[in-house]
Design a protein around this nucleic acid. Structure first.
Lengths: 194, 194
DNA sequence: CCAGGACTAGACAGACCTGTCTGTTCAATG
DNA sequence: CATTGAACAGACAGGTCTGTCTAGTCCTGG
C-alpha cells in the first residue's frame, strides 16, 4: 500500500485544478478539458472519481467549505473575549479579502451559475448555515438575549462585505464592516445579568 | 411614421424576453434561440438591434437599473423624515423580495457569470454606485457627520439582505436588515447642531 | 512471471452555442 | 404601381461542451 504517492493522487490534483480554475474564472467558463489539462490527468479519471462535472464542482465547494470555516474558527480562537470572537470572524474574512486570488465568495458565484435547486445549491446552503451557526453560537456565549437575530444581522454584514470587496475591488470595506458589527453587537440586549 | 406600433417593437419584445429569461434562469443558461422564440422575433433583428448577446445583456441590465433605482427613489419619496428615508430604501428592497419572480440581485448574478472586466461588470458597477450614492445623499440630508461611511454600511446590509433573501429563500430577513440599519443610523454621529 | 487494477491518451458522439447569411413577406412611401 | 427598408423564417458554419469509449501503459501483489 502506497504510504506516499510520488505525485499527489489524481483526485487531489483534480481538486486543486478545480479550485484554482473554477474559483478564478467561474464554473461555466471552465470546461472539463481545461481542468484535466491543468491537473495532468486523463478524462476517464475525472469521470471515474467524481462521476460528472457537477460532482467535481460539489467536491470543490466542499473543500472550500472546510477551508473557509476552518479559517474563521482559527481566527475566533485567537481571542478570548466573547464579543471580540464575533468580530474575529470578520477579521478572518478580511484576511481572505486581502489574498491576491480573492474573487468573491465561491458559493455565491456557484449558486448564481447553477440552477436554484440541486446539489450545488445544497452545498451553498450548508456553508451559509454554518457561518450563521457560528455567529449564533458566539452570540449565545456572549450572553446576547436574541442570538439568532444578531447572527442574522452579522451575516448580512459578512455577506455584504464579501460582495463589496469583490465587485467594488475594495477590500478596505472590511473596516466599515467591523465598525458596523461592533455597533450592532453593542446595541444588542443581553440576557438578564446574574 | 407609426405613432403606435400594433405590437410593441421588436426591440422592446426582446428586452422583455431577456428580462424574463435571463433573470429567471441566468445568462449562460439561456441561449439566443430561446430569447428570440419568446420574443417572437427573428434572430437578425436581435443582431441588428443589439449587435451581440452581450449587447442585449447590457441593455437588459440597464433596464433593470432604471426600474430598481426608480422603485427605491419612489419608496424614499413616500416619507419625509430624513432617517425614515434611509430606511425606506430598504423597504423598497423588501417589496422587491416579496415579488414571486424574485431571484436575487440581477447584477450580482450577471457579474458572477461574466468576466471580471467588461461591459457587464461596468453595468454592475454603475448600479452599485448609484445605490451607494443614494444612501450617501440621504445620509447627508439627515445630517450624518460621515455620510460616506454610513452609506457603505447601509449598502452592506442592502447587499447582504438581497443575498440572504434569495439564497436562503428568506424574504423575512428584511426585518432584521431594517432593525440593523436603524441601529447603525442612530449610532452614527451627526454634524454639530446649530 | 503474471494478472489485474489504475491511470493515460485521445477519438468520438451528440448536443448546444453564437453569429452570419439567404431568401421571403409586408407595409409604407414616393 | 414600384421601391425600399424592416422584419421574419430558418439553414448554416464553426466552435465548444459533456460524457463515453477504445486502446495502451505502468505498477503492484501474489
Amino acid at each position: 500500500m502506497p504510504i506516499t504517492t510520488a505525485k499527489t493522487s489524481p483526485r487531489q490534483r483534480l481538486l486543486d485544478a478545480a479550485n484554482e480554475l473554477f474559483y478564478a474564472e467561474g464554473i461555466h467558463s471552465v470546461g472539463i478539458d481545461r481542468v484535466i489539462a491543468q491537473a495532468g490527468v486523463a478524462k476517464a479519471s475525472l469521470y471515474s472519481t467524481f462521476g460528472s462535472k457537477e460532482g467535481l464542482v460539489c467536491a470543490y465547494l466542499d473543500g472550500r467549505h472546510e477551508i473557509m470555516i476552518g479559517r474563521l474558527r482559527a481566527a475566533v480562537e485567537q481571542v478570548d473575549d466573547p464579543v471580540e470572537k464575533m468580530l474575529a470572524v470578520l477579521d478572518g474574512q478580511a484576511a481572505h479579502f486581502a489574498r491576491p486570488e480573492f474573487r468573491g465568495c465561491a458559493f455565491v458565484a456557484a449558486a448564481a451559475e447553477a440552477p436554484a435547486e440541486g446539489e450545488i445549491a445544497e452545498a451553498t446552503a450548508r456553508y451559509r448555515n454554518e457561518v450563521r451557526s457560528l455567529f449564533a453560537q458566539l452570540a449565545t456565549e456572549a450572553g446576547i438575549a436574541n442570538p439568532e437575530q444578531l447572527a442574522d444581522q452579522l451575516r448580512l454584514i459578512y455577506d455584504g462585505g464579501s460582495l463589496a470587496a469583490n465587485l467594488d475591488h475594495n477590500p478596505a470595506i472590511a473596516a466599515s464592516a467591523r465598525a458596523a458589527a461592533r455597533i450592532l453587537i453593542d446595541a444588542a440586549p443581553r440576557v438578564a445579568a446574574s
